[in-house]
């Protein structure tokens, strides 16, 4: 066990391991690229949907049940399914990651919108604001903390799951996990797992710190 940890430490810090196109630096960049792009696409789809459902109050059933559907959907199965349908392309990775990210964003955006005090909304309408002014100048800013929480949760889930890109022959930090499993090289498998875990934890801490700094003046609300 001690030997294993020593080798793992050596693997993580060796300069050789960090350099080149299959080095940790490059794999880390790939991993972040998949994760950020997938989260952005998911946000572009999920934010308008969540805002619309929250603003109109229609389709609330969808917003509430989407998150439990998202939780139940096995990502591994989804990736393989899209892979078999589309062949060797980036589609399986992005479709699976986007599908994973959408529920948290829609549900939290909707939750943020319903948490807006109805009297504030009425007051805005009473002042003669149009629907888009109410939405963008009143509801959206008030719902922002919970919307941010949704984006953060989505990004963390996506970073954790982007590991499977390597399963369908792409890069990212999952490369080490799957190559290591294939080569029975436990040090490499553990190295990959530790790196993914560290990236996820660090991103989560950084984003929650950013969130606290941005919304310092707001009373704390839990998701």
């Amino acid at each position: 066990m001690y030997e294993l940890f020593k080798n793992l430490g050596a693997w993580l810090v060796s300069g050789e391991q960090w350099a080149g196109s299959d080095g940790i630096g490059h794999r880390l960049a790939e991993h972040l690229q998949y994760s950020l792009l997938a989260t952005l696409i998911a946000a572009a789809i999920a934010l308008p949907v969540g805002l619309l459902i929250g603003h109109t109050g229609r389709g609330a059933f969808v917003a509430i049940n989407l998150s439990s559907f998202g939780r139940a959907l096995p990502t591994v199965g989804l990736v393989v399914l899209v892979f078999l349908a589309s062949g060797l392309s980036m589609w399986p990775v992005y479709i699976a990651l986007v599908a994973l990210a959408i529920p948290s964003i829609v549900t939290n955006t909707y939750a943020g919108m319903t948490a807006v005090d109805p009297e504030v909304r009425d007051a805005a309408r009473g002042q003669g604001m149009r629907w888009h002014q109410v939405l963008f100048q009143v509801e959206l800013p008030l719902a922002m903390p919970l919307i941010m929480t949704g984006l953060r949760l989505a990004l963390i889930q996506v970073v954790a799951t982007a590991t499977i890109a390597a399963y369908v022959s792409f890069g990212g930090l999952g490369r080490y996990v799957f190559d290591g499993l294939a080569q029975r090289d436990l040090v490499q498998v553990l190295g990959g797992a530790v790196l993914v875990a560290v990236v996820a934890v660090v991103l989560d801490l950084a984003l929650s710190a950013l969130q606290r700094a941005l919304f310092r003046h707001r009373p704390a609300k839990s998701a």
Binding site: L4, A160, V177, L186, L190, G192, A193, V194, V196, V201
Partner: peptide, 17 residues
């Protein structure tokens, strides 16, 4: 909360030893 952030595949792999 920190445990929850760790990817599931990573948890399974880290338990291998």
């Amino acid at each position: 909360n920190v445990l929850f952030t760790i990817p599931s595949i990573a948890i399974f792999v880290l338990l291998l030893p």
